[in-house]
Simulated assay, not measured.
Amino acid sequence: MASKYRITEEEQTLFRETVRDAVPLRNDRVSPYRQRPRPHPQQQERDDREVLRDLLSDPLDPADLEIGDELLFARPGLQHTVIRKLRRGHYSVRAELDLHGLTSIEARQAVVEFLADCHRRHIRCVRIIHGKGNGSMNREPILKRKVAHWLRQRKDVLAYASATPTDGGTGAVYVLLRRAR
């Protein structure tokens, strides 16, 4: 396609004289005015803050503790058939956490991380093995009481009940979690 504009010899000479001292650029990329911020793991920081908050809010309320060996808790409005099925071990346990050998601080963190992972994986029923306290001082089930208290604090826990004898009996608890949205 022919150009409508013709450059005269005089214009060419003038252009060459004007750009004679120009030095070619080594890099033709332009740096942005502001550099992009580095990626920031906001969800991880929120999870870490929640773990810290949960670790620091651990006063035991005697009213929260169960009487006897068996643990049982259900949020208001949960159907009785759901609670009965949970107590009888009719729900499929999709994940489990064993707290044997952990201190209460380690156990608390492990429970929080385990439940968060279950929530991400859309798992509804889990088993937490807290033990019967046979290895603790005075043979008291310290972790059992604390696990019950921690689970009551969490809004994602709908119910929990001591496991059947084949799944650990009063040394373990079935936990029914709220559906992930």
Rank of each mutant, 00 (worst) to 15 (best):
R49P: 00
R49V: 09
E50L: 09
E50N: 06
E50M: 05
V51E: 00
V51Q: 02
L52T: 07
L52A: 09
R53Q: 11
R53L: 09
R53M: 13
R53D: 12
R53I: 07
R53V: 09
R53E: 12
D54W: 08
D54I: 07
D54Q: 11
L55K: 01
L55Q: 02
L55N: 03
L55F: 00
L55Y: 02
L56P: 06
L56Y: 07
L56N: 14
L56V: 09
L56E: 10
L56A: 10
L56I: 09
S57W: 08
S57L: 07
S57D: 15
S57A: 13
D58P: 02
D58G: 12
D58S: 13
P59H: 14
P59A: 13
D61R: 04
D61A: 01
P62C: 07
A63M: 02
D64C: 13
D64I: 03
D64A: 13
L65Q: 08
E66C: 09
I67F: 10
G68T: 01
G68Q: 08
D69A: 09
D69L: 05
D69H: 02
E70V: 11
E70R: 13
L71T: 01
L72V: 04
L72Y: 02
L72G: 02
A74F: 05
A74L: 10
R75S: 14
R75I: 10
R75L: 15
R75G: 09
R75W: 11
P76D: 15
P76T: 15
P76M: 14
P76A: 15
G77W: 11
G77T: 08
L78I: 06
L78E: 06
L78C: 02
Q79V: 08
Q79N: 13
Q79Y: 07
Q79A: 14
Q79S: 13
H80Q: 14
H80D: 15
T81M: 14
T81D: 15
T81A: 14
T81L: 12
T81S: 15
V82G: 00
I83W: 10
I83R: 12
I83A: 13
I83Q: 14
I83T: 15
I83Y: 03
I83N: 06
R84P: 03
R84F: 03
R84K: 13
R84W: 05
K85G: 05
K85D: 10
K85W: 03
L86T: 00
L86C: 02
L86S: 02
R87S: 13
R87P: 00
R88A: 12
G89N: 00
G89K: 02
H90A: 09
H90P: 01
Y91L: 07
Y91E: 07
S92A: 14
S92P: 12
R94M: 09
R94H: 10
A95S: 11
A95D: 11
A95P: 00
A95H: 06
E96T: 11
E96R: 12
E96D: 13
L97N: 00
L97A: 01
L97H: 01
L97P: 00
D98Y: 00
L99A: 08
L99I: 08
L99E: 04
H100M: 06
H100Q: 10
H100A: 08
G101E: 05
G101H: 07
G101W: 04
L102G: 00
L102V: 01
T103S: 06
T103I: 01
S104M: 05
S104Q: 05
I105H: 12
I105T: 11
I105D: 10
E106T: 06
E106F: 04
